[in-house]
Each structure stands twice: as structure tokens, then as C-alpha cells.
Amino acid sequence: MGRLIAVAGPTGALEAIRTGEPPPGVDAHRTAPRLDRWRIRLSAADPDADQAIREHLNIRLVCPGDPEWPTTLDDLGDERPYALWLRGPEDLRYACLRSVAIVGSRAASPYGLRVAADMACELAEQRWTVISGGALGIDAAAHRGALAADGPTVAVFANGVDVPYPASNDGLFAEMARRALLVGETPPGTEPNRLRFLVRNRVIAALSRGTVVVEAARRSGALGTAAWARKLGRVVMAVPGPVHSHSSVGCHKLLREEPPATLITRSEEVIEAVGPIGALAPEPGAPVLPRDNLDPTIRAVLEALPSRGGTGPAQIAVKAGLDLGTVNGKLGLLAAAGFVERAPTGWRLTKQARK
């Protein structure tokens, strides 16, 4: 259909379907059987009903060349959608300027759900649009995380934008229609099928600047989205999981294959991978222990105490390289702070200091 529209235009494509005659410049041998199938399907089309639903639910239709059409979809070439149905207040083209797809398993683990929600929330706080497929598991967690931060999020459906699928996400979709954006290639009322789920993955990949796979089994639609992202030259990222988790086998596969996916553990690393040059993720800081804030001399006295048992001030002074008067004074300060205590054999570390 994309090739037919590219050659004949939308009106010419419709006329070719009605007549069954391929236009000049189109491979007639390959196109004629499809024209026959499309003509049968055309008989069931009801544009007036589509228009009525569109007006009732405030759904809009955008096509290539419209102001809201994301030009990133043009990277799909002949496989570019020839129209998109949108429901919600967000502007699709603007939302996709800074966007990341977060996808993964429907049967997600608690670990995966938390990672997806936290990462989406943190990205949304930085005004990055979170794109996903609206499915159970990782997709829904990503959308909810973005909404929790009052940030932008886009769900790409494999059905009409008025059809809540899965039905258990009806409340989520209603909230997204009010605050975010629902996107679909098919007209209102269209039910999903397996092929449509596979086909819509290319749209998720093309709309975003990169795709993060949080959890994925060996056979997973999320891996299909990652494959499209790689084909389109987008950044492919994967979150590692437990080595025994079936839900992370696909992620580990992405990290091992050539070229490997970028390993992601936090939102700052996502922005580093897809954001502007210089947006480097800060190094994760080491945990601050109570002893880290001690004066260097006091810390030297503390470090001179044995890990087990007690010792006298003289032995501590030798190990710390300090005079006995200084050591006695610092031991008093350490005792007041709860780091050391008196013992029959001298001074020893408290349980708190040994942690």
C-alpha cells in the first residue's frame, strides 16, 4: 500500500483498488492479488461512521505533510503509515522530538515493573516523552510512571484508539486520552490481531530516538521493536536482569549480540545514549558512611582500633602515628559519637562502627 500511494497518490490508489487495475509504475504481478483483497475489504469500510466516532470522541486523523505528522516516520520508507488516528491533547510531532520507547514483557516480574515505572517517571520529569504499546506488564508500567510525573506519554495501539485493549487497562487509556496521547493506524472500532501487534512495533521504534527493552523473553514482541529500532539507526538499549530469569533472556541476548545494545540501569544513562552531546550520566555515588564525615585525625584514631577485641591508648597511638594526649582526646570524642566504648582490655569498636 505504501508503494502504491507513493506512485499513484491517495486518490489514485483508491481508484486502483476500486477498478483492480494497477497504475503505471507499479509491479502489476505483485500488486493485482492485493488489489483484489483490498477491494473486498473496501466494501466493509464506512467513512461516515468513522467520522461520527471521530467527532464524538474528539479523535483526529493526521497524514504525511500535516503539521502534526512526525517526520521520523518517513524513515520507514514504503512501510511508513499512510495515516494515524490520534486521541488526546498532546501534539504528536512535538512529543516525539524528545522521546524514548520503553517496551518489554507482558508477563513482567515485580523487578521489571518497578524499573519501567521508575525510569519512565524520571524521564518524564526531564520532559522526555515515554512511548510504548499500551500492553500489560512493562508497557503499562511505563505509561503509568510517566503519568505519575505529569509528563508526556504516547501509547501506540494495534487497534482503533477507541477500543480499550487489553480491557484491564481501560482506566489507564481513559486517563491518557485526557492527559496524553493514544495513536493507532487503523480506524475507530478496529479490533486487534496478532499481525497488527507485529506491524505496530515499527511505529513505536520510528517515533522514538531510542528503544529501551526492560524485560523480554527469548520470543518477544519487544525484541521485534528493538530490531526495527536497529534497522532505522535508532539507539537500542537493554536493562540487565537476574541470570536465571526467563523474562530477561531477551535483554541479555541484545547485550551479547553484535552490535551490542547499550546497557542501561538508570534514566540518566538513557538520556546519555539518546540526548544531546555532552549529556553524560553522572557516576553513581558511593554510599556515605558515618565515618566518612569525621575529621582526618579522628578517623586515623578510629582506623587504628582492631576490628575485634580491645586495645590500649598506647597501641592506638603507635598505629595512628599520633601522640598519646591527642589519642586520648579523640577517643573521648569517638565514644561520645558512639563509635568506640571502653572494654576490660582498653578501647574497642561498637557494633555500629563495625558495620
Results as ranks from 00 to 15, higher is better:
19 T>E: 04
302 L>P: 11
191 E>H: 15
197 F>V: 09
179 R>P: 00
77 G>S: 08
218 R>L: 15
268 E>N: 03
66 D>P: 09
119 M>V: 14
182 L>F: 06
59 I>A: 04
278 G>M: 10
288 V>F: 06
214 V>S: 06
236 V>M: 05
83 A>R: 15
118 D>M: 12
53 I>Q: 11
57 L>W: 15
230 R>L: 14
81 P>S: 14
164 P>S: 11
216 A>W: 09
53 I>D: 14
322 L>M: 13
169 N>L: 14
67 P>A: 05
3 R>K: 14
14 L>Y: 06
106 R>W: 02
25 G>E: 07
255 L>G: 09
93 R>E: 06
340 V>S: 05
319 K>T: 15
294 L>H: 02
76 L>C: 07
339 F>E: 02
70 P>S: 11
300 A>G: 09
256 R>A: 15
270 V>L: 02
354 R>M: 11
175 E>C: 01
299 R>D: 15
51 Q>M: 10
63 C>A: 13
96 C>N: 01
91 D>N: 15
49 A>G: 00
186 T>A: 09
156 V>P: 11
61 L>C: 13
143 H>Q: 13
71 T>C: 11
128 W>R: 02
337 A>K: 14
353 A>L: 04
59 I>P: 00
196 R>Q: 13
275 G>V: 00
19 T>Q: 04
173 F>L: 06
12 G>H: 03
21 E>L: 12
284 P>N: 08
231 K>E: 14
172 L>V: 10
348 R>Y: 09
198 L>P: 00
56 H>M: 07
222 A>R: 04
126 Q>R: 10
171 G>Q: 13
118 D>H: 06
53 I>L: 12
26 V>D: 07
151 G>M: 08
266 R>I: 05
355 K>M: 08
304 A>S: 15
245 S>T: 03
154 V>D: 03
352 Q>K: 10
155 A>D: 11
345 T>M: 07
274 V>D: 04
68 E>Y: 07
130 V>L: 00
122 E>A: 08
298 I>S: 15
68 E>M: 11
209 R>A: 03
76 L>E: 05
5 I>M: 00
302 L>D: 10
264 I>F: 06
348 R>L: 09
303 E>R: 12
238 A>I: 02
192 P>E: 05
303 E>G: 05
342 R>V: 03
43 S>Y: 03
330 K>C: 12
34 R>M: 08
6 A>L: 03
203 V>H: 12
156 V>W: 11
257 E>F: 08
294 L>N: 01
257 E>Q: 09
151 G>A: 08
316 I>Q: 03
41 R>V: 06
335 A>F: 01
68 E>T: 10
266 R>S: 10
247 S>A: 15
204 I>C: 04
194 R>G: 14
209 R>V: 00
3 R>W: 02
238 A>V: 04
249 V>F: 07
268 E>S: 14
155 A>N: 08
31 T>H: 03
346 G>I: 02
102 I>K: 00
179 R>D: 03
47 P>K: 04
173 F>S: 05
197 F>L: 01
236 V>G: 01
